[in-house]
């Protein structure tokens, strides 16, 4: 297997070819199936990962840092931008990125401005992994979402995806729908009008020939779903006086679903996904979150080593 990800940045999910996705999933599956023996524990022992989170994160940051440690790398960085020169001394983002890049071998970055990760990749002299840029992209979440679906279904081709909640602000949604065409997935968008998918993305899906439809209620489409992808309403990206009510998944709705249907959620969750569903056979979001570790281990391994470490 040839490693075409070596020294490459991952900014947008669209940067990856189908072959690169498959390569990542192969290595992620290797790490998942050997989770107890933790192979490649010294693979990155000479490497330093810059973990730069200008915006809050729990799962993404900790799974990246855990992935780095499990591969033997060292981690430097910050999880609170308020303690940086960028926030306190007015340093430009470009200057900050250039300097941080000179201290490490790879940058993992989350930032509230859309496009900040692309800017980082052009400014820092090391590969950059986008860990979320505003409402734009969250490509590693999409990798783990796809990988999780692949562990639950024989193949990804032709799956019916029902995407629910805040489709306007959810960057996990924005990244995920952009790969639907690669697997000929059918998309069902369930959201109130105020939180529907941005026009520009719909336009892009049309150009890619993706089949999709809009719905106001989950019960209209639940029978068709292979995967229900729930998202929370992102109040932090709205005005304080916006008071939008979430679409809630419940046991009554689940009674109409296919037996093998899986529920995914990028977490954190709110009332849209009640904890009473955690024990149903459909709940798959904790496995999804755990898969983030294996996918991120695979990504760090492939970007920082020339050969595929299998």
């Amino acid at each position: 297997m040839k490693n075409t990800l070596y020294q490459q940045s991952l900014i947008s999910i669209q940067d990856l070819s189908l072959e690169q996705l498959q390569l990542l999933f192969t290595l992620a599956e290797y790490y998942r199936s050997h989770k107890d023996s933790r192979p490649n524990s010294t693979l990155l022992e000479e490497k330093i990962i810059g973990s730069t989170f200008f915006e809050a994160s729990t799962r993404t940051r900790l799974s990246f840092e855990s992935a780095a440690y499990q591969l033997g790398a060292k981690v430097i960085g910050f999880s609170d931008a308020n303690n940086t020169s960028f926030a306190t001394k007015g340093e430009s983002l470009k200057d900050s990125l250039r300097i941080i890049g000179s201290y490490c071998d790879l940058l993992v970055m989350r930032h509230p401005a859309a496009g900040s990760a692309r800017l980082a990749a052009e400014t820092a002299n090391v590969p950059v992994i986008n860990a979320g840029d505003g409402a734009n992209q969250h490509p590693t979440q999409t990798l783990l979402d796809l990988f999780t679906m692949q562990t639950a279904f024989p193949h990804l081709e032709g799956l019916n995806l029902v995407l629910v909640g805040d489709l306007k602000h959810g960057r996990t949604i924005h990244s995920l729908v952009q790969v639907a065409h690669l697997f000929k997935m059918r998309l069902y968008f369930v959201a109130i009008n105020e939180l529907s998918l941005p026009e520009t993305l719909l336009f892009q899906l049309k150009c890619q020939g993706v089949e999709f439809s809009f719905h106001q209620h989950l019960e209209d489409v639940i029978k068709k779903a292979d995967v229900i992808y729930m998202t929370r309403i992102q109040k932090e990206r709205m005005r304080p006086d916006d008071n939008l009510q979430p679409l809630v998944l419940n046991q009554n709705l689940l009674a109409k679903a296919k037996a093998k249907m899986k529920i995914l959620h990028p977490l954190p969750r709110r009332e849209e996904l009640p904890t009473e569903l955690d024990t149903t056979p459909h709940a798959y979001y904790f496995e999804q979150a755990q898969n983030g570790l294996y996918v991120r281990k695979a990504l760090l391994s492939l970007i920082l080593t020339k050969e595929v470490p299998l």
Binding site: A114, G115, S116, R118, D133, T200, Q204
Partner: peptide
């Protein structure tokens, strides 16, 4: 220029306008 239209895709935020 899909379908005879002119679209501008932002290199950074990836918005299609």
């Amino acid at each position: 220029t899909p379908r005879q239209e002119v679209n501008l895709v932002c290199h950074y935020c990836e918005g299609v306008f």
